[in-house]
Design a binder for these strands. Structure first.
Length: 302
RNA sequence: GCUCAGGUAGCUCAGUCGGUAGAGCAGGGGACUGAAAAUCCCCGUGUCGGCAGUUCAAUUCUGUCCCUGAGCA
């Protein structure tokens, strides 16, 4: 018996959180975060986590549970999400996954290659080599070890070349081999609800959202986080908004410029998300604000 | 008013020893199997400030005018 779950997907700033709350008014649900940034405790405003009041309206899981110094990845997150879903089901609640991180959803629903954790010293070695010789050097080696995967990823792609190198070095198996491993069916029957807009329509909303975050104390939030975690390399600081505000706090740009960059980067991110979700199969699309449509869609699904 | 430095893609700028020009960013499209709010790929015609002159040919040289910045008055 597969678990029945609902996911609310779409680019940032389309009102996914509100849609989930509308669902919670209509039926017994629990919300599971599905956003790689909303896991960070110290940035509730900047990462647009549901407010405490909103989270009080029904169970909310996987929000703000990590410090900015903690790393998370797709596989680890999917494990947590799987446990969260089981938890809600045990309480008789319909799990509603809300977020914009497409890879995390894909990992939960389809599983991911069972590659073991990479020893830190191997990772460091690979990163050192990239720093010294560039990702192209690793790509040349990859061509010999795993031509099939080398053909798929670009020589300039730092992250994927690093990943391929560390996996091969640590496990003695290629990415192609790992990706060809049969995965057990994670066993989810997921209704995918997409909140869709054109980028042009979304842009002014994103700008307004950034302004509201600033009014709500985003800068103060960043300042406090910086006092506690004064290292710009930490995973938590790489979020959009966090990075721009930090740049201002360190005197590199004016607040006005930080705001502009924040909006610009948010927009570019939304564009990438739109590209991703466009390809997602079995999506039911709704306009922002069409809460009735969303609720009805879930009802009909049962 | 004088001197100097500039006026080239939406922005910041490179360049053409004379044969009509190219980077980064922005913008558009795309990819995505453990960093994913990440990472990466593809897409560049614009009166090269205006006018005139020299030349087969000027964005490039010359003159002049306009604009911007710095300095001197």
């Amino acid at each position: 018996m597969p678990s029945r779950i609902v996911s609310i997907l779409g680019p940032t700033g389309t009102g996914k959180t509100e849609s989930a709350l509308a669902l919670s008014d209509a039926m017994d649900v629990g919300v599971v975060n599905f956003d790689s940034r909303q896991v960070y405790r110290d940035f509730p405003i900047i990462t647009a986590q549901p407010t405490p009041e909103e989270q009080g309206r029904c169970p909310h899981l996987l929000y703000g549970m990590l410090g900015p110094d903690r790393k998370i990845n797709a596989a680890a997150f999917a494990d947590l999400a799987g446990a969260a879903v089981a938890d809600l089901e045990g309480r008789g609640l319909l799990p509603v996954l809300v977020g914009g991180t497409g890879l995390y959803l894909k990992t939960l629903l389809q599983g991911i290659a069972p590659i073991p954790d990479i020893p830190p010293e191997i990772r460091r070695k690979v990163l050192d080599r990239i720093a010294a010789h560039g990702p192209q050097a690793l790509h040349r080696e990859l061509k010999l070890a795993d031509p099939e995967y080398a053909a798929i990823i670009h020589p300039n792609d730092t992250q994927r070349n690093a990943r391929a190198a560390e996996v091969y070095e640590a496990t003695g198996r290629t990415m192609t081999w790992w990706h060809s491993q049969r995965l057990p069916d994670p066993g989810f029957d997921c209704l995918k609800i997409g909140i869709g807009v054109e980028l042009d329509e979304l842009t002014p909303r994103l700008a307004g959202r950034v302004d509201r975050m600033l009014e709500a104390g985003a800068l103060e939030e960043a300042r406090k986080a910086w006092e506690n975690y004064p290292d710009p390399q930490l995973p938590g600081w790489t979020g959009i908004g966090c990075a721009e505000l930090l740049s201002h706090l360190r005197g590199e740009v004016t607040l006005e410029r930080a705001r502009e960059l924040w909006i610009q980067n948010t927009r570019a991110y939304a564009k990438r998300q739109i590209t991703w979700f466009k390809r997602e199969e079995d999506m039911r699309w709704f306009r922002p604000g069409d809460f009735q449509g969303v609720v009805q869609c879930v009802r009909d699904w049962f």
